[in-house]
Amino acid sequence: MPVQGIRAVTTARNGVGAFILPCKRLDFHYCDWAGSSRGMVAFLKNTLPSFAKANPQIEIRVSPRPHKHPVIKGHYINGREKAVCVRNLEPEQIFQKANLLKEASGEKLKRTKKPVTSINESVRGIWSPYHGDLKSV
């Protein structure tokens, strides 16, 4: 056999070609009785229909959670979930939180130290000590 093939799997580059929104589901939980849910109930009544219409790629679930603070939970493609407590918040603030969950990638927050992260090879190549001018001692 002169040359054999090694089986591999292609890696995704989300946004190169197609872009899949990482947030796949948003759960809105509210309480009908408690005062901390007042903003959430107003948000669900007034803002949520337009929010859902603007983001058709997100599945939206609304369910009561009696005697608890209101919560928004985001479920992501990578299997993780993010929950934000929105007690005593105004509808506009809740909208911002929902937007934050929508735009999140689902990954744990981490500090980026390099300006560019890429899986492509460096165009310039890696520096080699054995090439270039020979150093005489």
Binding site: P2, Q4, G5, I6, T10, T11, R13, G17, E121
Partner: peptide, 15 residues
């Protein structure tokens, strides 16, 4: 096609 694959990694030469 937009997924990343480095084809030069798929070679396995014996001689």
């Amino acid at each position: 096609l937009s997924r990343h694959l480095n084809i030069s990694d798929l070679f396995n030469f014996s001689q």
